[in-house]
């Protein structure tokens, strides 16, 4: 039987830091899954990490309705943003401006991540902690309650967001600009939008326009990657 000894989580620390007694999340919560893997990456710094309330948090000089976690270690300052798209508008769902703003403001390491790709998320948080100076990580966390899908499909919806290029995973640092998860055959944007019941009233025309916007944004990203 030992020929099947491949244990996937062997590549991650197996100790659980996520405190279940404090955890009042809904079943299938994307934030909960993301926080669990972030905690594994930052280990000893969990108690020093500070959380900011969604309504009052201050990010890039503007007030935003996102959950922010700040971690400090020696010279490194990491800002991790857990984005569950509480606003619920289509424009917010397909275009993410925050990482681009962070790059423009001179952050040393900027990355986007998704809890559907835990190893990718883990590596990026590790990298951010080891980078001197400010760094920013934007995590897209699917929310079964606000987005209206079955709790068991949380991870699948996260995959769809990346595979339809609505939320490409990339990292920007000093001297590199990479797309970390490359999709060879991108799916149509409608696959991602129709998986969520909150977008069920969209017309075919609106979806087409959204798809054009997504393609344009991805084109910009590819240009940036090739320029470096």
């Amino acid at each position: 039987m030992d020929k099947y000894s491949l244990m996937v989580p062997n590549f991650l620390p197996c100790k659980e830091y996520f405190d279940i007694k404090k955890n009042n999340a809904c079943p299938g919560c994307g934030i909960s899954l993301a926080v669990r893997h972030v905690y594994k990456a930052i280990e000893g710094l969990i108690e020093k990490a500070t959380w900011e309330a969604p309504a009052a948090c201050d990010l890039f000089g503007k007030k935003s309705a996102l959950s922010i976690m700040k971690v400090k270690k020696d010279k490194a300052e990491v800002v991790i943003c857990f984005d569950n798209e509480a606003g619920g508008k289509l424009e917010d769902a397909i275009v993410k401006k925050m990482p681009a703003v962070a790059v423009a403001q001179g952050y040393k390491y900027v990355a986007t991540a998704s809890p559907s790709y835990p190893f990718d998320l883990f590596d990026k948080v590790k990298k951010a902690i080891e980078t001197e100076g400010k760094s920013y990580i934007h995590i897209l966390c699917p929310c079964p309650v606000a987005w209206k899908f079955e709790p068991e499909t949380t991870v699948k919806v996260g995959f769809k967001a990346v595979e339809t290029l609505a939320f490409p995973l990339y990292e920007v640092g000093s001297g590199f600009y990479n797309v970390t998860i490359k999709t060879m055959q991108p799916k149509k944007l409608a696959v991602y939008l129709t998986a969520q019941e909150r977008f069920e009233k969209l017309t075919a025309k609106e979806i087409e326009q959204a798809a054009a916007t997504v393609e344009k944004e991805y084109g910009k990203l590819v240009e940036n990657v090739q320029a470096k």
Partner: peptide, 22 residues
């Protein structure tokens, strides 16, 4: 079960744990 641990990896609440026999 091939004991790959995907269930452990994706559990949002850390409820899945590994027993002594793997």
């Amino acid at each position: 079960c091939i004991r790959c641990g995907i269930c452990y990896l994706y559990c949002p609440d850390g409820a899945v744990y590994r027993t002594a026999d793997g």
